[in-house]
Design a protein around this nucleic acid. Structure first.
Length: 1033
RNA sequence: GCAGGAAUGGCGAAAUGGCAAACGCACUCGACUUAGAAUCGAGAAACUGGGAGUUCGAAUCUCUCUUCCUGUACCA
């Protein structure tokens, strides 16, 4: 019997599918366990070997939990709306639904062949109307809710209306827009229905408002803050500009504090929690109101202007020597004096021109302008000049700061630059060079009623005093902004919204889903409307309650529908709940199912979702929890970020034409102070061109590691490495490259006085041309591209060894490894084992296909334990003590490893076990049968096959995990390491039941001990029974 | 700048206070084979980034420096 992995794997994959082996039950007496992978986007490129890493880990855990007797929910599906399918549609005219379906098919085939234990009966696709029906439903729930700060939860909008009707909004403690006006119950009741709707929008958890958005012209859509990195789009790196647009937004800021606090009770990685904390950006301080002093331009009747600022350092209020507003601040033009107008306007224009990116890149240049206006200090009543400067961000806090140059470096730099006074309000601190920002060491001085106080006391007192005069209060500020929820794209969830007189109306939930309409083109319309503006059947008929032709719009019974679609994160913000009851047509998930499964026990995925998906989904979960739709307000108890698998790129090293000639003696001098490259530059005496620019040299001296080896073999000092590389290269050059050197320069190549340095460049070679010893298939490389056809290879021992480097896996680097090939050549079990064997799950690690032979031959060895050419070898023979010891130490280690997610070490443990059992010639079923259960989460196909061969008729996935029995590991003696002053010198076999004293006696009597001591008396003897003996002295 | 993580053979790594380098790749030699692949056997190498401390004993704990990676950044 041979280990025919291809047949075995196909057989069991079919068996699992036919028998629905991994279907999870919603009614079970077993304890539940929910293992989830982060939602994949089915891209057209398919999977590379890096993608399944997390899926394999979660699959091992899911299978392990089944062996432990849990009812395991391990679903999979697709986050199938998104930009790439739409970009492809724009280019080719193919409907995104078609390409998406094709991509999913490829994905599914690739996933299936790796042997995952997914419950495919629960598959979801965000682009499927039966799914996005419920995304639309949640949107409507958000629209119909507001956030009650007193109860600290979301409530139904009807309760808000009731409040307005009886008390207005004066005593209301709700989260709302900044510019809400106060009104009484009478005011409210007197308002038109339209006006009431407009006011309610300022409170709804999803709302339509004109907001400044990040517009990406290349994509023709807005992007959320987390989709922008360094001022350009995360995808594609396109420029992003600020633009005012009417958009749907999500009032996630209402949940800022709970999102922050919730991190305390979930077992997610610290790095991830930390980035969420940074993103939420809580700062505690005070808001302070400064009154602007009237000047000639403000007429007497006009209300005096006020500037609100937020500060985390109210204790430094007496150090304020100016104020700075963001150039975009509303008040700027209103307060600027005529004398300063020209300068201020010029400055505003100049900053507006600078892109967000320039502004971020250039933080050193200080710029600003004086408005000519003054504000009054709330306590001293002194006038404070008001400046504008682009170091103050319009989007944070109030877009204005009280500048305390002695306590803030940015204010300090600004003050220095514009010659603004820098009063010192710190006791015993020198501020002549820089600002003093250390809160802990602060003692306040020159500050009236807070002199001598520390930061904490002074802060408290200042806030109290501000409240007394009505010019401030304690305040907590969050960096987290409301999330823009509209996208000007086609391939996303349509909003269940139509417009009556420009005001948004929700379609009744019983008419959902509102399906995506057909369009001719996926581009924006000529009038600049989103792609849905191309749809001809896209109007809502309120009588028939269906989508009808645009021609019928009469604004009485037929109204236009929303043209934006939802962003990518809409569907992924709640999918984990849908899996609990994935096929329910009447509810997003049934209450019983939700109560049974509760939450995700283990969530595995990449860290790139830290501030996007993982924050938005926590927000939606908390909202659904507030409204009583889900039983928990955090949906994932534990989260692990798997590391990325990197590619090992291969290169050929080509000599550039230019050769630098250096005098060796000069170079040695230069080397003393400079690095090698600089030294060569500095001591160069001549340069010339090679006769060819198509020379490829062996990596022998082009890779540093190879060189280290070489150095050792010649006994060359470390410090001379670089120098000698070059000299040796020179000799090599003399022999091999002579014919490429012009005659008049040959003199340099043939004497020892000169060093020739070649400029090199490295060209990516496809990794499939490289064998396990890094040797390049030169013919394949030459035939790969016409421009490589006549490359001259200078070989070393007849082969070309490619330099390798670790990089991200990508097509452009020709280092992508497709799991299909690995599965075909070695099988899914080998792939699974190898991915785990590479290293710790969370770590970044390079893929090197050559190494897979190790785990593959392990599987063959495993097979041979059970079967050989004559058939099954396993018998009922009683196991030996050694057999049992091997089995039980394996059980113990593997169980510990899985529970610690240390999958790489359990693969090693299996190898050790198989090596030992092979050496022991173990045939015992009592050993070999439980061993299969241990291995089955990792290599399920071979385990099933051998399990069946041993006479079992049920799938191995139903077998209980073997019980660890300590008694098999009990030893009667221990080979003690005997150390002298901490250094191990020899070992000594001693019975384990000896007492400390007996051990000490036995060791001291040993002649080797006496030899080590050479007559000295030990000062101290440390005996740790069962571990070590250390003799000091 | 700030935050988080890391540094151990040629490579991936293991050891979490007690015999550093288990396990695997690559390498060398040998066996088998017409040959290659595969398989089996044997072997070599390298002392934990630097410095200090705690300890009988440190890769592991503490301090410090260096380097690298990841995230984030005019956040008042």
């Amino acid at each position: 019997m041979k280990y025919d992995f291809n047949d075995i794997e196909a057989k069991w994959q079919k068996y699992w599918a036919d028998n629905q082996t991994f279907k999870a039950e919603n009614n079970s007496t077993k304890p539940k366990y929910y293992v989830l992978d982060m939602f994949p986007y089915p891209s057209g490129a398919g999977l590379h070997v890096g993608h399944p890493l997390g899926y394999i880990a979660s699959d091992i855990y899911a299978r392990y939990k089944r062996h432990q007797g849990f009812n395991v929910l391990h679903p999979q599906g697709y986050d199938s709306f998104g930009l790439p399918a739409e970009q492809y549609a724009i280019q080719t005219g193919q409907h995104p639904a078609i390409t998406t379906a094709e991509n999913i098919k490829t994905y599914r085939r690739q996933l299936d062949q790796i042997g995952f234990s997914f419950d495919w009966s629960r598959e979801v696709r965000t682009s499927d109307p039966s799914y996005y029906k419920w995304t639309q439903w949640i949107f409507i729930q958000l629209f119909n809710s507001w956030y009650n700060n007193d109860k600290d939860k979301a409530e139904d909008i009807s309760e808000l209306i009731q409040h307005f009707e009886t008390e207005g909004n004066t005593k209301l403690n709700a989260v709302c827009d900044d510019d809400v006006e106060e009104f009484t119950a009478e005011d409210w009741n007197g308002l038109s229905a339209e006006k009431q709707q407009q006011i309610l929008l300022q409170y709804r958890l999803t709302y339509l408002a004109e907001t400044e958005v990040n517009w990406c012209p290349a994509f023709g859509t807005v992007l959320a803050n987390d989709e922008i990195v360094n001022g350009v789009s995360e995808r594609g790196g396109h420029p992003v500009i600020r633009k005012k647009m009417t958009q749907w937004s999500m009032r996630i800021s209402a949940y800022a504090e709970r999102l922050l606090q919730g991190l305390e009770k979930i077992d997610w990685t610290d790095a991830l929690k930390e980035s969420q904390r940074n993103w939420i950006g809580k700062s505690v301080g005070a808001s302070v109101t400064f009154n602007v002093l009237p000047n000639v331009t403000s007429s007497a009747v006009e209300k005096p202007h006020k500037i609100d600022v937020f500060t985390t350092r109210p204790d430094t209020i007496f150090g304020v020597s100016f104020m700075t507003l963001a150039p975009e601040h509303d008040l700027v033009l209103k307060i600027t004096t005529p004398e300063q107008k020209a300068e201020v306007e010029a400055y505003i224009e100049a900053t507006a021109k600078r892109s967000e990116r320039d502004r971020m890149a250039d933080v050193k240049t200080i710029s600003g302008a004086f408005t000519g206006a003054y504000a009054e200090h709330p306590f001293t009543k002194e006038p404070i000049p008001i400046w504008i400067g682009d170091y103050v961000l319009a989007g944070y806090g109030t877009g204005a700061v009280m500048s305390v140059p002695c306590g803030d470096q940015r204010d300090y730099d600004f003050a220095k630059y514009f010659n603004i006074p820098i009063p010192n309000i710190f006791e015993g601190v020198d501020i002549s060079e820089e600002a003093f920002a250390d809160k802990e060491k602060t003692i306040i001085a020159n500050s009236d009623f807070i002199n001598g106080m520390n930061y904490k006391k002074a802060t408290k007192r200042v806030i109290y005093e501000l409240e007394q005069i009505g010019q401030g209060e304690g305040k907590t500020n969050y960096r987290l902004r409301d999330a823009v929820f509209s996208r000007q794209r086609y391939w996303g969830e349509p909003f269940p919204v139509y417009y009556v007189n420009g005001l948004p109306q929700m379609i009744d939930t019983k008419h959902l889903p509102i399906e995506l309409p057909e369009v001719e083109k996926y581009l924006p319309t000529e009038t600049g409307e989103p792609p849905l503006g191309n749809a001809t059947v896209w109007a809502w008929d309120t009588d028939k309650n269906k989508v009808v032709s645009n021609d019928l719009i009469n604004d009485k019974t037929v109204f236009p529908l929303e043209l934006n679609t939802m962003p990518g994160w809409a569907g992924s913000s709640w999918y984990f709940n849908r899996y609990m009851d994935a096929n329910n047509p009447d509810e997003f998930a049934n209450k019983e199912a939700l109560d049974y499964w509760q939450d995700v026990d283990l969530y595995i995925g990449g860290s790139e979702h830290a501030t996007g998906h993982l924050l938005y989904s926590r927000f939606w979960q908390k909202f659904l929890f507030d409204k009583g739709f889900v039983p928990t307000d955090e949906y994932a108890k534990k989260l692990i970020n798997q590391g990325m698998i990197l590619g090992t790129s291969a290169f050929v090293c080509r000599l550039q034409k230019k050769v630098v000639v250096t005098d060796k003696s000069l170079l040695k001098e230069e080397m003393k102070s400079n690095n090698w490259l600089k030294a060569v530059e500095a001591s160069q005496i001549d340069t010339f061109d090679l006769l060819s620019d198509k020379i490829v040299v062996s990596n022998y001296l082009s890779s540093f590691n190879e060189f280290k080896k070489y150095r050792r073999s010649k006994g060359i000092e470390e410090s001379d490495i670089k120098l000698l590389t070059s000299i040796d290269f020179n000799n090599f050059v003399t022999n091999q490259l002579k014919r490429f050197i012009p005659d008049e320069y040959l003199k340099y190549a043939s004497t020892d006085n000169y060093i020739l340095s070649f400029v090199k460049d490295f060209i990516h070679a496809d990794v499939s041309f490289i064998n396990s010893s890094n040797e390049l298939d030169i013919e394949a490389f030459k035939n790969w591209r016409p421009e490589f056809k006549d490359f001259e290879f200078i070989l070393e021992d007849g082969v070309y060894k490619s330099p390798r480097d670790v990089e991200k896996m990508s097509k452009s680097k020709y280092n992508v490894v497709n799991p299909d090939d690995i599965v075909a050549d070695y099988g899914a079990d080998s792939l699974r084992l190898y991915e785990m064997f590479l290293g710790p799950l969370e770590q970044y690690k390079p893929w090197n296909t050559a190494g897979i032979t190790g785990v593959h031959s392990f599987l063959k060895k495993l097979w041979k334990l059970y079967a050989d050419d004559n058939g099954l070898k396993v018998t009922d023979v009683t196991p030996t003590k050694d057999n049992l010891k091997t089995l039980h130490k394996t059980i113990k280690k593997v169980q510990e490893d899985i529970e610690n997610f240390s999958f790489n070490t359990s693969v090693s443990t299996f190898m050790i076990a198989v090596n030992e059992l092979t050496a022991q010639k173990c045939n015992s079923k009592e050993i070999l049968e439980p061993l299969l259960v241990l291995i089955s989460p990792y290599a399920p196909h071979i385990a099933e096959e051998l399990w069946e061969k041993l006479g079992n008729s049920e799938s191995i996935s139903t077998a209980p995990f073997p019980e660890f029995d300590e008694s098999h590991l009990v030893e009667s003696s221990k080979n003690y390491p005997i150390s002298f002053n901490g250094k191990m010198r020899f070992t000594m076999e001693l019975p384990l039941d000896l007492s400390k004293d007996e051990i000490e006696k036995a060791v001291l009597e040993n002649e080797k001990t006496q030899e080590q001591l050479q007559g000295r008396t030990p000062k101290k003897v440390i005996v740790v029974p069962g571990k070590i003996v250390n003799i000091v002295g």
